[in-house]
Every structure is written in structure tokens, then in C-alpha cells.
Design a protein around this nucleic acid. Structure first.
Length: 1149
RNA sequence: AGUCCCGUAGCUCAGCUGGUUAGAGCGCUACACUGAUAAUGUAGAGGUCCGCAGUUCAAGUCUGCGCGGGACUACCA
């Protein structure tokens, strides 16, 4: 037999399973990566799939001007997993990479490098050179990115990426804007933006969030008294004020210079307000003022004291230091809405709808933290103000300038306009004056003084607060209305919400919550950015703004240029070389649509007037949101991709949650407004990758993890597996390399060991899966069990991937590999692999283990693409069961329902549990497993348990080294029973009496339990109500057998007979001896197959034990003879139990 | 400030539509196995389920209010 095995081994040398010396995951990745490259596996994974069964994936473009971090590995792993999974399921998954190339981060980086500021662009450096520098900078780290992509095993087509600065891409974006324009969704309007008058430029919020921009400053703040007008609306308030006296509303501001632009006062509808009766501290005139109730004490502090009787007010003498105040009638904000008041500082009137100005309006943002609970509202200088007044139909204070355009009372330099009387020409902030020119008293102070004198100021004081400053000029920022181009997305708000409901969000809460709420509170999309490196707004306008054209293609632009040349507004057509019908790269390289080129183009209007391009660029978010169409140069090329839904809408996208209002939104907005369609059907928004202490990673804190280092050290598979299985993608991940190590050891180590075990013996036996597959039903029970488990696993993993739950999939796989396959199946079956001939049983074992490994390779391949490929290929190279050279070209296994035997799974679960319990009992008594025991007992409570445990009886007995299992059917008198109410079934029926029932049942003894068993239930009266419980309303279990060692778990009870008879003792000694001799064999360097002779020199007890078990020992250790006597040959010393030393001599036969 | 996510053992995480003794892995401690062996197995210790209030016969689970960590959006009189 042994010789035969060797011969066989020689024959099949040509096809053996590779055996490795240890597992080195980074090396595995290296090998597999080379294979992918050499064999062009990625391309094959697309080509081998049916073109008519597409799974559409959109790659969100990263910006290549920054370096990738470990969070990119996370995000891209998620993308990769589902693309690979869908490929396994037979879909064709095209994956075009992309680069986001425009935008502020790029520009700021370039400015820093060149040592210039925005103001220098166009003067110190030409826009052309500047844009050239941006273009170079943005692709700087492309190599690093490509390298990461490769190393982590992210499959995406990097050969043909879409790049947002390319002419074709930009043309498609223009086309989309043209569509919006045609639908009437593009308009020019005002918006309140942070503005730096000294720099003469608007600032983005990004710029405002630079460190050090918000600083604490002391400003003159003022609580102004706005005089209410008595009319029908205010009738109920004036009733609470002495006849003939005035009622004022108190409103606080830290920017008194905005008071002349006040057109409304905002109150919170639910806030409570009171009228306070008192005297003005500057003029000493009696006042009756409205203020939020919780803020009365804040406003009436210091000089004021509260009185309980209104009559005492008259005791106050003018000029007195302490001023009394009395809290009068109470109102809610809702009562105040609609009240009119006199304009505080009537320098100018709003040019539009002045009749709607100067009234009280509601606003959600009003709080009672500060001020008076009534907010001074100047729509021209506050974003909230503008929003809330627009909703209420209140105009901002805009006046006509010299050319008839609406302008606010402050000009672009930050000075008051001529309308402002004595203040005209003054800067609204002293900081805006040149050094030494600033007046002693600022506008804020002067206005406050004026108000004091006119009995319009309730309180003036210095107030310290944080206020944003321009990061270039160091001067405070103004919130100022600026011209911008907008997309009227609010028109499509309902449709966007409707379509959003059809998108499958993972997690769901992001879709309904963060995204849904965002859509509910949608504002129009401000497209304008006054920058240089981006896609220009394709709108040309006459100087008066009365005629304009929106360009949708290069062809159209060329034609318009032609007209302009004919009309004489331009000398020559800069696009004359461009051939609109030629889609070649060469042709498109002839044009550049960036600002430095298109700004030189002047077009002619229908009325014959010259038109200049609007100076702004579009928001870069529009660039990336255009990606589904622009990546294909739609509609100029690849029209069918979108129109025939071959590549649109996307089936799947995934990015970080930070993209919710970024890319996720812009995709959705453009999809809805232009195509009336969702842009994507499924979306995963993943959480952040934090450091191991839960802190955000940052270069500054030095806790950022280098993705390359991690991948090199642990390999991409372990890194990906760890990231995916450790936390659900949408939860934040606390990244700890210890966790990767654990994954490496626990999952990959175990899987590798299982494979090593398989390959070791399969190579010896020459198992190459050449035999016909043994029908599952023909295999031994243990094989059928693991196959059943395997098929259940296939089903569950498939479902987890299908529902975009990669974490679940990964955890299922690893628990199968560790707990079922390695710890149970392989352990129990070891002997089958190394003992005996190449029989049907052995082949069955090989086939079973092979199938498990092969399936695991495929199931885990989306998450661990490298190792799984090597595992799969190593198996398949020999067995050739798949016509695929890579796991990624294989097909996802289909669960064979017929092979799923839940009954068998339940049986094995019992075996596992009973074994574990029995071992636990041994442990308690310190009886080692090698010592055989006679018997265990288990009471049976229902017939199914009986048949199940019978099935696995032998398995259990050999596992725990016990000779027999006795099942106790009639347990009365033998076992102590315990009864518990079944809360789940009784609850709905008798919830109220639950406590009483539980109390009663818990007090029951054997007699009552027997009665319940006999009557199949119980009925009686509790708390005066008739209660009827059937047998299912009880849970009866046994927990003790008097006189036995017993343990109980999950309703199963095991009792063990721990009596060690002399015969058992001898058997135990024999097993100990076998164990020692096996060790000695190994020590002596004998081959596994060497036969030996044994001589033993030992005590009488042990001699007797040997005598009684001689054939067993001889068989186990391959001994031809066992003799007692003095030792010849090598001598070993064995220490067996307390029976004394044993000398053993071994000699090869 | 608003919206959302998270808070369970020393660490990382499970815990389904509420059901009575809250689980796993790692780590720790002890032991076993010794033909998968720089592997493997078993057991043990370890928890005011962030806090408070409410709904309920019953709350880790549902509701409200807080606290702590994080994200995004907005920026405030």
C-alpha cells in the first residue's frame, strides 16, 4: 500500500497543488498582480461578459493634485467589491476612471507654489500661463494614484479616463448647461456672499474656513427701538399700552451700519414676547417695548430694577440712576407677525415693493440666546435676512444707481452711497481706511449716537464676538449681494424628492435624512465662481444685459464667431481650424475652452450689438455631476449609451458621506433637471476612516496612515478584508493595524492552513479531482453536512452582496471558514485524509474539502481579490473544473437547494454543542480527554431531539472519548425539571397579568409541572380573571440529575458518569503510552511509515495496562512487537500519570 | 445652529419585528492536543448595554430630553 502511494505520487508529479512555506500576503498580491497584467485579466473580465447585460458603475473622480490616503482604499474597496461581484454574476461592468481637474483647491495650491495671489492673475502672470500651471499641477500625482489603484487591486480603466479639463468633456458640460437654459432654468440674480471690499472679490466659504479667519473682535453693538404703527394688526398690542404712548420693538445688531438698510424685523413664531414698561436710559422718556420674555432680564440689567406693581413706575424721577421696569402683557411671535413699524433711519426707500417693507416677519433661525429675540433684518447684507425676507415678500433696500441698476446702500469699495446724507462716502468699517485716514468715530459709533439722540437707541455697548476676516487683506469681511448665475433647481424640487424615493440608499437614513432634508430645504444652485481655472459659463451678453446667448457646442460657437466676424465685432474666427464633424482627438486638441481663450471671443447679438462672455466660471461640482454624460462626450458621440440606457442611469455608485451634498447631489440635480431621471439607482455612502483612537486622521496630528506602507506590510487582501468586515461601510472605521494583523492570522491564516492541509495529502494521494463527482447523497454524513453548510453560505453571501451589505458577506465567510470548515470539518476528518487506501470515502473527503475551498475562493474574491485568485488557480490548475484562468473570470456559485439539509445542520449543531458541554464537564473534573469514560446521558424532551442526537451519537462519543450515550425518555423521578412561562406567547394574551403568572409558574414544583404535562396546559383564575394557557405557553427544561455531573445549555442537558473503572484506567494509560511513543518516533526521526519494535521497562500496573490493550497500541504506533524487559536501542523516558516512570526503547524493524 | 451617524466586556464589533441568564473575536488566565505543529482545541474571569425621563405586563431594542465622539450644511441679530 505504501509503495503504491509513492508510485502514484511519482506519476502525478506533473499536476500537483503548489505547497508554500508560510503565508506571505504581500508576496501573493505581487504574484497575482503580475499575472493580471500579463494575462490582461481585467480586460478579460469585461470581454467575457455579455454586452447586453450591463451593470453600470460610475466612478467619482478624485482630484489628482492631492495624495491619496487610507480612506481612499476604503472607498475604492467598496466600489471594487460590487463591480467584481456583479462580474461574477455574469454582468458586464465597464469602469471608466476619471479625474476631477478644476476648482479652488487646485488654484490655491498653484498660487501658493508660484507665490502669487488672486490679484496677480492677469497682471503679474497671464491667465494663460496661470491656467497652464494649473493644468500641470493637477495631474502631478497621477502616477501615485495609479500606483495605489494597482496595489490595492482596484479594477478601473486607467488607460482611458475621463478628464474634466479636456475639450470634449467641457463641450458636454456646455451642452448640459444649454439644456438647462432652454428649459428656462438658468438665471442671473443676487445672492449674499462673503465679500472682501479691500480685495474687491467675493470669497468662497472654503476661503472663509481657512485657519485664523474667524477672529474675536469688539464691535459697537446697538439695541434699537423700532416704533410700531398703530393699525388693525397691532390693535391688541396697543391695548396694553397707555393711551397716546408709543410701542417699540427692540432689535439688536452688532453692525449698526446695516440699520439704514433694515426693511424687516424677524421673530420666532413660538417664542414668547412681553411688553416691558420702563424709561429710556439715555432720554429718560417712558417707553413700552417688546422683547422676548427669556431675554428681558438680560436687556434690563445693570441700571434697571424690576417692580411688581405698574403704578410704581410713576415714582421714577427723570435722571435717576436706578430705573424701574415692569413686565406687562405676553404675546407669541405669531401674534406679532404682520405688525408694521416706522423706518428707523429713512435715508432711502427700497426701489421695489416699498409698501411691503418695514414689517414683522417670521423666521426659524431666531433664538433667545442673545439680543432681544427680535432680529434686525437687512436683506442686502445677510444671507438669512435675504432668505427670510424673500419668503415673506419683503424687499431689500436696493436703490437705483447712476445707470439704473439696483444697488445696496454700500458700494463695492465698502463706502456709503450718496443717498446716505451725512454718512455718504464713509467706509462702513474703520478698517477699510488707509493707515492714518480713519476718522475718530466709526460709522457704527456715529449711527449709535444719532439713535440715542432721537430716542431710537435702547442700549449701546461694546460687544465681543467672532467675525470672519479676509485671509489676504486681514480686513473684516462684508456680507454683500453679488451677481451670480443660478440653476433654478427649486422649480424641480418636488420631482427631485420624488425621484430620490426610488433610489436605494445604503444606509437608508442618509437618503431619507441627510439627503432628503437637504432636498426639502433646497436653494437655487449658485453656479458662479469668480476664478480662472474651470469651465467658463458659456453665456455671452450685451453690455446692457438685454440680449444674451448660451452656447451649447463648439460647432455653435464657431458659427457664432463667423457671424461676429461678418458683423465686424471680431477680426478673425479663432475656431476656423476646428471641424465640427470630426471627433478625432487631433481635431479637438485644436480648441481650448478655458477662460483665457473664450474671453477673447466677442459675439454679435441679433440686434447687432457686441456680446462679451460673462466673466464667471461654473462651480466645479457641476463638472463632476456631469460625468455620466460628459465621460462619453454625449450627445456628440456615443449617443446610444445614454439614449438607449446602455450606460445610464448608473446602477451603482459609492463615495464618502461627505459627498451627500456634493457629488451625490449634483448627479441627482443634473439627472433630474436635464433628463427627468435618477442618475443612479443604488448608492453607498461610506463613513470616515478615523485613527485607532477615533480621532480624525490629519497630517498635522501625524496620525494619518500611509496607504502604501499598509498595503506593502499587510497586503491588500488583509487590508481590504479588515476594513470591510470590521465595521459597516457607513459607520466610521477606527483604523488599527492590529486589526489587520488579526485578520491576517485568523482568516487568511486559517484558510491558508486548510489549503496546506488539503494540498499536502492531495499531492501524496494524487487527488486531482479526475474521478466523477460523488453525488452528495452518496457521501458520508459529515461531508453532506459541510456541503449543506456551504450551500447555505452561498445563498446568504449572495444575498448580502445583492443587498449591498459587504460587511455581512465577509463576516459570514470568515465564520464559515474558521468555525465550520477548519475547526470542525477538517479536525474531525483528519484521519480520513492520512489513514488508509485511496478509497471512495477518501475521495469523497477530498472532493468535499476541494469544493469548499474552491467555493470560498469565489465567494471571497470580491473582497480579497489577490489571495482568492491564487487559491482558486492553485486548485483549478490541477482539477480544471472551471474554464477560467482567474477567479474573477469564474461564475458565482449557485446554491444547490437539494444539498441543503437543515435537519442535518441541526443535528450537527447538537453534536457540536453536546461535545462542547461534555468537554466542559471533563474540564471541571480535571479528567483529560485521553482518559476514556463510560457513559453520558441526555434527557430527551421532544422526538426531534432524540432522532437528531442519535444520528450524531458516534461522532460525539469519539470526540469526547466516551463509550456510550444513554437517552432518558421518561425522566420523571430521574431529573429535576424547571418550568418557565413563555413570555412571547403569553404576553399578547395576558400582558397585564404577566407578573402574577410568572410569579406563580416560578413557584411550581414537580407536581405542578407533571400536571401541566399531563393536561397539556393550565387554566385557572388570576387577579379575578380566567386564564387559559396551553402547552406552548410553557418552557420546560431539565437542569439536574441527582448524583450525576450535569450541565445545561440552550435547553440541552448532558450528564456524565465520571467513574473510572480499572479497565477504563488501563485504557487511558494505553492511550497515554501511544501518545508518548508517537512523540518518541518523531524525536527519533522515524518516517511516518516506519515499522518498529518496542521494549518497555515499567511498573506492574502499566505492564498490565499494556497487556490489556496490546493490539490497540501496536496498531496505533505501527509496532510489530511490544516486549517487556530491559531496553535495547534508543531509550526514552515517559512520565505517565502517577503510576511512575516508564522506559521505552524503540527500534526500526 | 440645523441635519445625520455612532456610544454594548480592556479593545474591535454582533444583538432580527420589545420577551426575562446580553453574545462573538482579540487580549488576559488556566488547561488540553502533539501525524494541519512558529499550527490547533477547550474552559474561565470580565458588562449601572452613555445618562435621565416616558410608553409597556416587559426596554440594550420604541419615544422625548440631555451628555460624549464624528460628519455635513449654514453662519447668526
Amino acid at each position: 500500500m505504501l509503495n503504491l502511494r509513492l508510485v502514484k505520487k511519482a506519476i502525478i508529479m506533473s499536476a500537483t497543488y503548489p505547497e508554500y512555506e508560510g503565508l506571505n500576503l504581500p508576496n501573493v498580491a505581487e504574484r497575482v498582480m503580475k499575472k493580471w497584467e500579463n494575462e490582461k485579466v481585467f480586460q478579460a473580465s469585461i470581454d467575457s461578459r455579455d454586452e447586453n447585460k450591463p451593470f453600470v458603475f460610475f466612478e467619482g473622480p478624485p482630484s489628482a493634485n492631492g495624495l491619496p490616503g487610507i480612506h481612499h482604499v476604503m472607498a475604492r474597496s467598496i466600489k471594487d467589491i460590487f463591480c467584481r461581484y456583479k462580474t461574477l454574476k455574469g454582468f458586464q461592468v465597464k469602469r471608466k476612471a476619471g479625474w476631477d481637474t478644476h476648482g479652488l483647491p487646485v488654484e490655491l495650491g498653484v498660487e501658493k507654489e508660484l507665490g502669487i495671489t488672486k490679484e496677480d492673475i492677469g497682471t503679474k502672470i497671464s491667465v494663460e500661463d496661470y491656467n497652464k500651471a494649473c493644468k500641470e499641477a493637477v495631474m502631478r500625482y497621477t502616477d501615485v494614484w495609479n500606483n495605489l489603484t494597482k496595489k490595492m487591486g482596484y479594477w478601473v480603466d486607467m488607460e482611458n479616463p475621463y478628464i474634466t479639463y479636456e475639450s470634449k468633456y467641457m463641450e458636454s458640460v456646455w451642452w448640459l448647461l444649454g439644456q438647462l437654459n432652454d428649459k428656462g432654468l438658468i438665471y442671473k440674480g443676487y445672492t449674499i456672499q462673503p465679500y472682501s471690499p479691500k480685495a474687491g472679490t467675493g470669497l468662497s466659504t472654503h476661503e472663509l474656513n481657512q485657519p485664523g479667519c474667524y477672529r474675536d473682535v469688539k464691535d459697537t453693538s446697538c439695541v434699537a427701538q423700532f416704533k410700531a404703527i398703530k393699525n388693525a394688526e397691532s390693535q391688541s398690542l396697543f391695548e396694553k399700552v397707555p393711551a397716546g404712548e408709543n410701542l417699540h420693538l427692540l432689535a439688536w445688531t452688532t453692525t449698526p451700519w446695516t440699520l439704514p438698510s433694515n426693511t424687516a424685523l424677524t421673530v420666532g413664531k413660538k417664542i414668547e414676547y412681553v411688553i416691558v414698561h420702563s424709561y429710556n436710559q439715555y432720554t429718560f422718556k417712558p417707553i413700552h417695548v417688546l422683547c422676548a420674555k427669556p431675554l428681558v432680564n438680560k436687556q434690563f440689567s445693570k441700571n434697571y430694577f424690576q417692580i411688581e406693581n405698574q403704578d410704581e413706575l410713576s415714582n421714577y424721577e427723570k435722571g435717576g440712576k436706578k430705573i424701574p421696569f415692569f413686565i406687562g402683557a405676553e404675546f407669541t411671535g405669531a401674534d406679532l407677525v404682520g405688525i408694521r413699524y416706522e423706518q428707523l433711519l429713512p435715508y432711502a426707500q427700497p426701489m421695489e415693493n416699498p409698501e411691503n417693507a418695514f414689517q414683522v416677519i417670521p423666521g426659524d433661525f431666531v433664538t433667545t440666546e442673545d439680543g432681544t429675540g427680535i432680529v434686525h433684518t437687512a436683506p442686502t447684507f445677510g444671507a438669512d435676512d435675504a432668505m427670510v425676507s424673500k419668503q415673506a415678500g419683503v424687499p431689500g433696500l436696493l436703490v437705483e444707481d447712476e445707470r439704473g441698476n439696483p444697488v445696496p446702500l454700500v458700494d463695492l469699495q465698502g463706502r456709503f452711497r450718496p443717498e446716505m446724507g451725512e454718512f455718504a462716502g464713509m467706509y462702513v468699517k474703520n478698517e477699510y481706511y488707509d493707515d492714518g485716514e480713519a476718522p475718530e468715530k466709526s460709522v457704527d459709533v456715529l449711527i449709535s449716537i444719532k439713535l440715542k439722540e432721537e430716542n431710537k437707541a435702547f442700549k449701546v455697548e461694546k460687544y465681543e464676538h467672532s467675525y470672519p476676516h479676509c485671509w489676504r487683506t486681514d480686513k473684516p469681511v462684508l456680507y454683500y449681494p453679488l451677481d451670480s448665475w443660478f440653476v433654478k433647481v427649486t422649480d424641480k424640487k418636488d420631482r427631485m424628492m420624488e425621484l430620490n424615493k426610488t433610489i436605494n440608499w445604503q444606509p437608508e437614513s442618509t437618503g431619507t435624512g441627510r439627503f432628503g432634508k437637504w432636498l426639502e430645504n433646497l436653494n437655487d444652485w449658485n453656479l458662479s465662481r469668480s476664478r480662472y481655472w474651470g469651465i467658463p459659463i458659456p453665456i455671452w451678453r450685451t453690455e446692457e444685459g438685454d440680449e444674451q446667448i448660451c452656447i451649447s457646442s463648439i460647432k455653435q460657437l464657431k458659427e457664432e464667431c463667423e457671424k461676429a466676424v461678418t458683423a465686424g465685432v471680431m477680426d478673425n474666427n479663432p475656431l476656423s481650424d476646428f471641424d465640427p464633424s470630426d471627433m478625432s482627438k487631433a481635431n479637438y486638441d485644436k480648441v481650448d475652452l478655458h477662460k483665457n481663450y473664450v474671453d477673447k471671443i466677442t459675439l454679435v447679438s441679433e440686434g447687432g450689438k457686441p456680446m462679451k462672455r460673462e466673466a464667471d466660471l461654473i462651480d466645479v461640482w457641476f463638472d463632476s455631476g456631469s460625468m455620466p454624460y460628459a465621460q462619453w462626450h454625449y450627445p456628440f458621440e456615443n449617443k446610444e449609451m445614454i439614449d438607449d440606457h446602455k450606460a445610464y442611469p448608473g446602477d451603482f455608485i459609492a463615495e464618502g458621506v461627505d459627498q451627500t451634498r456634493g457629488w451625490f447631489y449634483t448627479l441627482h440635480a443634473i439627472g433630474t433637471t436635464v433628463f427627468d431621471s435618477v442618475a443612479y439607482k443604488n448608492v453607498i455612502s461610506n463613513g470616515l476612516v478615523l485613527d485607532k483612537n477615533g480621532q480624525k486622521m490629519s497630517k498635522r496630528l501625524g496620525n494619518a496612515v500611509d496607504p502604501f506602507e499598509t498595503l506593502d506590510q499587510y497586503g491588500p487582501d488583509a487590508t481590504r478584508w479588515y476594513m470591510i468586515t470590521n465595521a459597516a461601510p457607513w459607520d466610521n472605521l477606527k483604523f488599527d493595524t492590529e486589526g489587520i494583523k488579526e485578520t491576517q492570522r485568523k482568516f487568511f491564516g486559517t484558510l491558508y492552513n486548510t489549503y496546506s492541509f488539503f494540498s499536502l495529502y492531495a499531492n501524496i494521494d494524487g487527488f486531482a479531482y479526475q474521478e466523477d463527482r460523488i453525488e452528495t447523497s452518496e457521501r458520508p454524513e459529515i461531508d453532506r453536512w459541510i456541503i449543506s453548510k456551504l450551500n447555505s453560505l452561498v445563498k446568504e453571501v449572495d444575498n448580502a452582496f445583492e443587498t449591498f451589505e459587504p460587511t455581512k458577506a465577509g463576516r459570514l465567510i470568515q465564520s464559515f471558514v474558521n468555525d465550520q470548515l477548519s475547526n470542525w470539518y477538517v479536525r474531525l476528518c483528519r484521519r480520513r485524509f492520512w489513514k488508509g487506501d485511496y478509497t471512495q470515502d477518501k475521495i469523497s473527503a477530498y472532493q468535499t474539502l476541494f469544493e469548499c475551498l474552491e467555493t470560498i475562493a469565489i465567494l471571497s474574491s470580491p473582497i480579497a481579490p489577490f489571495y482568492s485568485d491564487e487559491l482558486f488557480s492553485d486548485l483549478n490548475k490541477v482539477a480544471k473544473r472551471h474554464n477560467a484562468t482567474s477567479v474573477h473570470l469564474a461564475h458565482f456559485p449557485t446554491a444547490v437547494e437539494a444539498d441543503i439539509d437543515t435537519e442535518l445542520e441541526a443535528q450537527m449543531e447538537i453534536a457540536q454543542q453536546v461535545s462542547s458541554m461534555a468537554l466542559s464537564l471533563r474540564k471541571k473534573e480535571k479528567i483529560r480527554v485521553r482518559q476514556p469514560l463510560q457513559k453520558i446521558m441526555a434527557p430527551i424532551l421532544d422526538p426531534s431531539f432524540k432522532s437528531r442526537i442519535k444520528h450524531v451519537q458516534d461522532l460525539i462519543l469519539s470526540e469526547i472519548n466516551v463509550k456510550e450515550l444513554e437517552l432518558l425518555e421518561d425522566t420523571t423521578g430521574v431529573l429535576t425539571k424547571k418550568i418557565k412561562p413563555n413570555f412571547k406567547t403569553i404576553g399578547p394574551k395576558y400582558g397585564k397579568h404577566m407578573k402574577s403568572i410568572a410569579g406563580m409558574v416560578n413557584s411550581w414544583g414537580d407536581k405542578e409541572i407533571a400536571s401541566v404535562e399531563n393536561n397539556r396546559g393550565w387554566s385557572g383564575e388570576i387577579n379575578g380573571e380566567t386564564i387559559e394557557l396551553d402547552f406552548n405557553d410553557f418552557e420546560i427544561e431539565t437542569d439536574d440529575i441527582p448524583g450525576w455531573l450535569v450541565t445545561s445549555e440552550n435547553g440541552i442537558t448532558v450528564a456524565m458518569d465520571i467513574t473510572i473503572t480499572p479497565a477504563l484506567k488501563q485504557e487511558g494509560i494505553a492511550r497515554e503510552l501511544v501518545n508518548r511513543i508517537q512523540n518518541f518516533r518523531k524525536e527519533a526521526g522515524f518516517e511516518v511509515t516506519d515499522k518498529i519494535n518496542i521494549t518497555v521497562e515499567t511498573s506492574a500496573d502499566i505492564q498490565a495496562a499494556i497487556e490489556a490493550n496490546k493490539s490497540y497500541i501496536a496498531d496505533e504506533v505501527l509496532a510489530d512487537a511490544i516486549n517487556v524487559g530491559s531496553i535495547e536501542g534508543t531509550e526514552f523516558l515517559a512520565d505517565i500519570e502517577e503510576e511512575g516512570d516508564t522506559k521505552v526503547g524503540l527500534r526500526k524493524v
